[in-house]
Design a protein around this nucleic acid. Structure first.
Length: 280
DNA sequence: CGATGATGAGCAC
DNA sequence: TGCTCCTCATCGC
């Protein structure tokens, strides 16, 4: 479940359940065993998310656990200290009081990083809409000087940290932006719309644990349509709705692979723009 | 460039 | 039963 809202949500859960408490740290699967042992018996200090990257610090340990979920990684929290070791658990974190078990499976990255390495990783990232210190001007400057399509830029972690396939498709739809528009031709108002969508929608994703992007007038309750059924659970306009009617105009939603990822958009609501030569 | 791999839920067939 | 996938580093051509 890996867009930035998941990482930030998990950071909150780790802090809630483990921060300030001594932990058991193991790697039932074995691949993280030596590193996990460094945290074993320590007091957990803090988990922090930067985009899709998660860092966990413990007292008296210089290095931090660095986790990137990739496409498949998942966290599972339970209040059961005897939770069966089902599947390949890369990292298991437990505390006694109150009882809590956290299991991490299938991450792209799970390793210890020195403070210098942590800084190098976070320094590569663009502004994260879920962090209060995020500076959107950094993202605008990068978009403003390239001919790369805006749909690709929205997924570039050096432009927006934490944004993934769903939020990019939905933000572009909500602002009726042609996904193939070169970044340098994006209008300032369009950029502001994208950024404000990320800063409004992603915190809702952190809070609810699902991605909802439809305006009140397009919800199932407002229109009488059936709720969406998909693994991600949220109400969206175009993501993974290829061939189905657009919720606004009825046009079949389009799908095209671009940059190795599936892009969903509506050709009617997000028409190919007239040639643009001047930014405003 | 494209292929590969971490891994398992959810859904189509 | 099999395919997809909210990702991205790495490898080979």
């Amino acid at each position: 479940m890996p867009e930035g809202h998941v990482t930030h949500r998990v950071a909150g859960q780790i802090n809630h359940h483990f921060a300030g408490r001594p932990v058991r740290s193991t790697s039932p699967q074995g691949r993280f065993a030596d590193d996990a042992a460094e945290f074993d018996g320590r007091v957990l200090r803090e988990a922090q998310a930067f985009g899709k990257h998660l860092f966990v610090a413990a007292e008296e340990v210089e290095r931090q656990v660095h986790i990137h979920l990739g496409l498949l990684g998942k966290f599972a929290f339970t209040g059961d200290l005897d939770e069966p070791e089902r599947g390949a658990i890369r990292w298991r974190l437990q505390c006694e009081q109150p009882p809590q078990t956290m299991d991490l499976r299938g991450p792209n990255v799970c390793t210890l990083r020195t403070p210098e390495e942590v800084e190098a990783i976070t320094g590569q990232l663009g502004p994260d809409p879920l962090r209060v210190d995020a500076d959107p001007e950094v993202a605008y400057a990068r978009i403003h000087k390239t001919t790369t399509p805006i749909a690709v830029l929205c997924m570039d972690q050096k432009v927006f940290a934490g944004v993934g396939n769903i939020y990019r498709a939905e933000a572009l739809f909500r602002h009726r932006i042609d996904p193939f528009m070169p970044g340098k031709f994006l209008r300032r108002a369009e950029f502001d719309g994208i950024w404000s969508d990320f800063t409004e929608l992603m915190p809702l994703g952190v809070r609810d644990g699902r991605i909802d992007t439809v305006y009140p007038e397009h919800t199932p309750e407002a229109t009488g349509r059936a709720p969406r059924v998909d693994r991600h659970g949220g109400e969206v306009y175009v993501y993974r709705r290829a061939g189905q009617p657009c919720l606004v105009g009825g046009t079949a939603v389009s799908l095209k692979e671009i940059g190795g990822r599936n892009l969903f958009w509506c050709r009617t609501c997000q028409p190919r723009s007239r040639r643009r030569t001047v930014r405003d």
